[in-house]
């Protein structure tokens, strides 16, 4: 299909790093900084959850169910008397952990296949890109549902699913960038000098991809988080009692009347984190985007393409 291809190829163009000192610009972008701060803080909180959490997130107390927020339970307690704050914190571990793991997985698979397609001849390229086309011919959530449904529930399967349905987009972009880099003079020169392909990849191509991939991953983190929590909400996530935001929301929906706050905490957590990833991703992209000018309005030329790509397939 041409639509995504055109989009992504353009995206690839824009991703060629410029190397100009633009860090200051990023720091001045308040919303990007806010996003980045929230993202970093939340990831830290998730990492430190065992120490930050005031209670054992799985410890039940049937005597104090649905308690209102108090000093001992900052977010109150849930239907089993468990400390909601500790559950949200530990839930971050899993939800964000899966988002990170999924994104890393997608990046690794996508970069590898994209590089192979870009560097190694027609056969590999045709094969990989045609398969990618087929995967891209299905809305990702629907494909993910089928895969996770058939693989069965569980953390590992959820991550496998996410990687399986999202690698094609990455592979495409990386291939596009690879082709671009390949045409550059220094690569041509290296090839002429008889440098092996693997060496070219390692020396010239891969380093040039690092920046764009970081941006892409940050942006995608939000999308992956939405996908993971969506699948988890539908019941394809982790087994109880391990807290996970999507599943917590699903469990809370029967208490919609009695304790809507139990729905709100995980819901707000997901929303905040996706928002943070999106803001940070936008800001990061500006760093590497030659089209964006310092005083430009929010959604300009280069931006809009990737914002659309990044946001459209979220659930």
């Amino acid at each position: 299909m041409s639509t995504p291809e055109v989009t992504l190829r353009q995206a690839g163009d824009a991703f060629v790093p410029q190397g100009q000192p633009v860090l200051r610009r990023f720091v001045r972008d308040a919303s990007a900084m806010a996003g980045l701060s929230i993202a970093v803080l939340a990831l830290l909180a998730a990492l430190l959850a065992p120490w930050l959490a005031t209670r054992d997130p799985t410890a039940t107390n049937f005597g104090s169910r649905f308690a209102s927020p108090s000093r001992s339970h900052p977010m109150g307690t849930d239907n089993l008397g468990r400390d909601e704050f500790s559950r949200i914190l530990h839930g971050a571990r899993l939800s964000l952990g899966m988002a990170v793991a999924g994104t890393v997985g997608i990046s690794v698979v996508g970069i590898t296949l994209g590089l192979v397609a870009g560097m190694y001849g027609r056969l590999a390229e045709t094969l990989i890109m045609r398969v990618a086309d087929v995967f891209l011919a299905l809305p990702t959530l629907i494909l993910a549902l089928v895969v996770v449904g058939l693989l069965g529930q569980g953390l590992r399967n959820l991550i496998i699913t996410i990687v399986l349905v999202q690698w094609p987009g990455y592979a495409r972009i990386v291939r596009g960038m690879t082709l671009k880099v390949r045409e550059r003079d220094f690569v041509e020169a290296a090839r002429a000098a008889g440098t092996s392909r693997l060496r070219i990849v390692a020396r010239h191509v891969a380093p040039n991809l690092v920046g764009p991939v970081v941006v892409l991953s940050t942006l995608d983190m939000g999308r992956v988080l939405l996908a993971v929590s969506g699948l988890s909400f539908l019941g394809f996530g982790i087994s109880p009692p391990t807290p996970e935001w999507g599943a917590m929301l699903a469990d809370a929906k029967i208490y919609l009347d009695r304790a809507p706050q139990l729905l709100a905490w995980p819901g707000l957590s997901i929303t905040t984190m996706v928002l943070a990833f999106n803001l940070a991703g936008d800001g990061l992209r500006d760093l590497l985007d030659p089209h964006t000018t310092d005083d430009g309005p929010g959604w300009q030329k280069g931006r809009r393409r990737r914002r659309a790509r990044a946001h459209l397939s979220t659930t």
Binding site: G246, L256, L263, G267, I270, T271, V274, L275, P297, G298
Partner: peptide
């Protein structure tokens, strides 16, 4: 314009299953 940007960002970040329940409530 700024307000619309905020609204667009939120729309892109809120999961449908959460937004749906918010509307129901």
């Amino acid at each position: 314009d700024q307000g619309l940007r905020v609204w667009a960002l939120l729309s892109a970040s809120i999961p449908g299953f959460f937004f749906g329940y918010l509307l129901i409530i």
